[in-house]
Simulated scan of single mutants.
Amino acid sequence: MERKQVLIVDDDTRNIFALKAVLDSRSIPYLSAASGTEALQLLSADDHHVGVVLMDIMMPDMDGYETISALRAMPRNSQLPVIAVTAKAMLGDREKCLEAGADNYISKPIDVDELLVQLQQYLSR
């Protein structure tokens, strides 16, 4: 059985690079997408074993809220865990992410230990 991968969705290549470095340090396999549209295309393919999505919220064109909603509308991905990863850390932002369908929330700058705990929780299912 193939190991579950993490799908990183972020329009900023610096954020993708930083998250990839964390995942590489723990030998966690990953894919990345630079937009919500690209993420949905990857998730609609049958050949990826994504176990959790790290979703940036503030992206152009299709933001993280819209992407999560579209992901939830895909029957095969309706239960896929999504962790919102965002710089939006104001009062109510966590709740807005959860209402949009995210399973969890982590604010930038990322606490690596917290991220790894959340990833382990979802990848061990």
Results as ranks from 00 to 15, higher is better:
48 H>I: 12
11 D>S: 07
47 D>P: 01
44 S>L: 09
29 P>H: 02
79 Q>S: 14
99 E>S: 12
121 Q>K: 15
26 R>N: 11
64 G>Q: 04
108 K>R: 13
91 L>Y: 12
31 L>Q: 12
44 S>C: 14
1 M>K: 09
21 A>W: 02
122 Y>W: 15
62 M>R: 09
3 R>F: 09
110 I>G: 10
85 V>Y: 08
39 A>Y: 04
96 K>R: 14
68 I>L: 09
95 E>G: 06
76 R>N: 06
51 G>K: 03
49 H>Q: 10
63 D>K: 01
10 D>P: 01
119 L>V: 09
67 T>A: 11
78 S>M: 13
45 A>P: 07
93 D>W: 06
115 L>T: 06
27 S>P: 01
94 R>H: 03
123 L>N: 03
1 M>G: 13
75 P>I: 07
65 Y>V: 09
115 L>S: 10
115 L>M: 11
125 R>S: 12
70 A>Q: 15
85 V>F: 04
59 M>S: 14
43 L>G: 08
70 A>K: 14
5 Q>L: 10
65 Y>E: 04
9 V>E: 00
80 L>P: 08
15 N>W: 02
61 D>E: 14
11 D>E: 05
95 E>C: 07
15 N>T: 03
40 L>W: 03
42 L>N: 10
95 E>F: 05
102 A>D: 01
1 M>L: 05
38 E>S: 14
110 I>S: 12
45 A>F: 12
67 T>K: 00
97 C>V: 06
15 N>R: 03
40 L>K: 01
30 Y>N: 09
6 V>M: 01
91 L>T: 08
112 V>C: 12
57 I>N: 06
41 Q>V: 15
101 G>Y: 02
64 G>C: 12
105 Y>Q: 08
36 G>D: 06
34 A>Q: 01
66 E>P: 09
93 D>M: 11
3 R>K: 10
13 T>H: 06
65 Y>R: 04
13 T>Q: 06
60 P>Y: 13
14 R>T: 09
93 D>G: 08
115 L>P: 15
16 I>D: 01
9 V>Q: 00
16 I>Y: 05
70 A>R: 14
35 S>V: 04
8 I>N: 08
21 A>Q: 15
117 V>E: 13
94 R>P: 01
58 M>S: 12
111 D>R: 09
49 H>G: 07
63 D>Y: 04
95 E>N: 11
28 I>C: 02
97 C>Y: 00
85 V>N: 08
62 M>L: 15
1 M>D: 13
112 V>N: 15
85 V>H: 08
2 E>W: 03
122 Y>P: 12
97 C>W: 00
33 A>Q: 02
97 C>H: 00
3 R>A: 12
123 L>F: 11
43 L>A: 11
12 D>E: 14
1 M>E: 11
110 I>E: 08
27 S>Q: 13
12 D>Q: 10
11 D>K: 00
22 V>K: 15
22 V>P: 15
113 D>A: 13
97 C>I: 04
27 S>Y: 04
114 E>F: 10
56 D>V: 04
77 N>L: 05
97 C>R: 00
1 M>H: 07
64 G>M: 06
119 L>S: 12
124 S>E: 11
53 V>M: 02
121 Q>I: 07
24 D>V: 00
58 M>A: 01
68 I>H: 04
73 A>M: 14
43 L>D: 13
15 N>P: 03
84 A>E: 03
1 M>S: 11
108 K>W: 05
25 S>Q: 13
14 R>M: 11
67 T>M: 05
100 A>I: 15
48 H>N: 14
110 I>A: 11
57 I>S: 05
